[in-house]
Design a protein around this nucleic acid. Structure first.
Lengths: 126, 126
DNA sequence: CCGAATCCACAACGATACTG
DNA sequence: CAGTATCGTTGTGGATTCGG
């Protein structure tokens, strides 16, 4: 038996905090739009409007929302040029680039298994 | 100028089909629950109820839904033992295992950058 | 051009109950 | 134990508008 409720040693508390933070971050980035944005930015710096057309099908709102989130988590760098009309450029940070590498892996995986998946779907749908 | 609307050569049509299929698949798997399930199954075969407690916070409904989707795409294998009470086991297929490798990468990335992200968030929230 | 806010339609989700 | 169906709520995300 432990002496305090919830096994309250400082170490365990710290581990629990790290765990919930990790879950939070994972939930942030494990979504379609975030990953597609990261993938697009892999090729270099892009403006907001360029991203908008690069990431097929994303709405204005989703793009800004996800960009804010990625900026908050330190994955993208946002550079505002004080010109008129405004010009805002987005770039992957170093951690962002590191993540992009694994996202590349996911994309490659998808391409590689297109056939397998298509036939698997046909079998299942019958 | 092309002779037909929408640049309609057979090759281009095939490429467009593959592209939209890839997008569809990517949208399927690039979500929190699917990735967490794949990650959990990496350690071996699990029963439905085991998955339920392994994947923290997932509801019965989300679990079945995502498992169906993963099965349909050929990422997990579903084995029903005709016993009473029923026993259903889920295992990653070979393509599923391949995908898990890249998901592992994402998890490792998260752990590695916890600190950077936490401080980045604090700066941003100010 | 970029961003924030509002509105609201519709999908996602959790809870519950029922079947094999 | 596992799966399906239904229902009610929540929340997501698109369209639009206005502001810098």
């Amino acid at each position: 038996m432990v002496t305090k409720e919830f096994s309250g040693s400082p170490d365990e508390a710290a581990l629990r905090r790290a765990d919930s933070l990790a879950r939070e971050i994972f939930s942030d980035i494990a979504n379609k739009w975030a990953l597609l944005i990261i993938e697009s930015l892999g090729e270099g710096t892009l403006r907001f409007s360029e991203l908008r057309s690069e990431v097929e099908g994303i709405s204005h709102k989703m793009l800004t929302q996800n960009l804010r989130m990625l900026e908050r988590n330190g994955l993208v760098d946002r550079k505002v040029h004080p010109t008129v009309p405004p010009r805002v450029e987005y770039t992957l940070t170093e951690p962002g680039q590191a993540l992009r590498a694994t996202v590349d892996g996911m994309c490659a995986w998808t391409q590689l298994h297109l056939g397998h998946i298509e036939t698997s779907r046909r079998r299942f749908d019958a």
